[in-house]
């Protein structure tokens, strides 16, 4: 199949206005979501350095426009599947900040009761169906959730987010083929932040665009979007979701972006060429979006009001999480089985 969408050049749209196809409400939502993700992740980063969060964490600072754009385009009953770099995707579905910060701090108030941590954030009530820490595993799982939607004709979609490194593991290819053959309402989103953990993705991948260039192998159009522009992400998300809901099957989208921090807490990212981070920070999605809102005529006090409200919410969530006790020891023996227990014998 020939490339359809291709790498669309982002031209400044003269006709763009606040109440175009995206609209003010969605834009303010995306503004809030980007801020929530940025502020929560920066807070998590700070809490790590205060030794109040242990283990590891994989931040998506710099990539917020992707989660915000997709999150704003989703229906409340849609499903999100994401990776260990999944704070953002879980948060934008409406998950509790206290539950998230508390989970990373290992507190009883944690959204997983302290049993999962940063890499497994899940909030089923809000459609966040899990953060998966084994590369590739959640692509077929997302296809399965989409199968349920197809089988029950619910009109739901499953959105599945993963990094560029995932495109080189078998489960990616199994899931793509499977989803196309079964025509499932699932949207696969590759967040290409240029690095597979510590290694440039270009050094370990046979094609230039790790997801988009593989799409043709599954009869799908090649779709690349500017992952630092929430509006562009929202549009591509809406198109893919509409197609999936209408029975048009899956999509594969590659969003180009950049993470400001290293792969994980342990990684200072010294492998990056000098100046690369600085170049990408010039394309930081948050100041860019702020300016866009002002250019569209949104009042400064509305824009900054959202900023202040988000910061206040993060502060309050942090204090709540700090005040929460550790999980009770007996909870380690709960929830292995559906009966709530852990018994394997009589």
């Amino acid at each position: 199949m020939a490339k359809k969408a291709g790498a669309k050049k982002k031209a400044p749209d003269k006709k763009a206005q606040l109440n175009d196809d995206i609209g003010e409400e969605n834009r303010l939502t995306m503004w809030r979501l980007q801020l929530e993700v940025r502020q929560v992740e920066q807070r998590l980063h700070d809490l790590f350095f205060q030794n109040l969060i242990k283990g590891t964490s994989h931040l998506a600072i710099g990539q917020e426009a992707i989660s915000a754009g997709f999150g704003a385009a989703m229906r409340p009953d849609d499903y999100t599947f994401c990776t260990y770099r999944g704070h953002a995707h879980t948060l934008v579905r409406g998950a509790s900040m206290t539950g998230m910060i508390g989970e990373l701090m290992g507190k009883e108030c944690g959204m997983l009761k302290g049993k999962g941590g940063s890499m497994h954030l899940t909030d089923v009530e809000h459609g966040a169906m899990g953060s998966y820490a084994i590369i590739g595993a959640h692509l077929p799982i997302a296809a399965g959730a989409a199968w349920q939607a197809q089988y029950n004709k619910t009109g739901q979609i499953a959105a599945c987010f993963f990094g560029d490194g995932t495109t080189n593991i078998g489960a990616f290819h199994e899931a793509l083929n499977f989803a196309v053959v079964w025509n499932l309402p699932v949207v696969f989103v590759c967040e290409n932040n240029l690095y597979m953990e510590y290694t440039p993705i270009s050094e370990v991948t046979a094609v230039e665009h790790p997801a988009a260039d593989r799409a043709c192998a599954y009869g799908l159009p090649s779709i690349i979007v500017d992952g630092n522009d929430a509006d562009a992400v929202f549009r591509v998300a809406t198109t893919a979701f509409d197609k999936a809901r209408a029975g048009g099957g899956p999509s594969l989208i590659e969003a180009k972006t950049y993470r400001y921090s290293g792969h994980s807490r342990a990684d200072p990212a010294t492998y990056r060429p000098e100046g690369e981070l600085e170049e990408w920070m010039k394309k930081d999605p948050i100041p860019m979006y702020r300016q866009r809102l002002l250019d569209f005529g949104v009042k400064e006090d509305v824009v900054s009001g959202i900023e202040e409200a988000v910061l206040k919410a993060v502060d309050e969530a942090t204090e709540e999480a700090k005040a929460s006790p550790p999980p009770p020891l007996e909870s380690a023996y709960e929830d292995v089985w559906a009966d709530g227990g852990a018994s394997w014998r009589n």
């Binding site: 944690g110 959204m111 997983l112 009761k113 302290g114 049993k115 999962g116 497994h120 899940t122 909030d123 089923v124 009530e125 169906m129 899990g130 709960e334 929830d335 292995v336 089985w337 559906a338 709530g340």
Partner: peptide
């Protein structure tokens, strides 16, 4: 099920 605190 376990890792999600019994959500799944």
């Amino acid at each position: 099920r376990y890792m999600t605190g019994g959500q799944v």
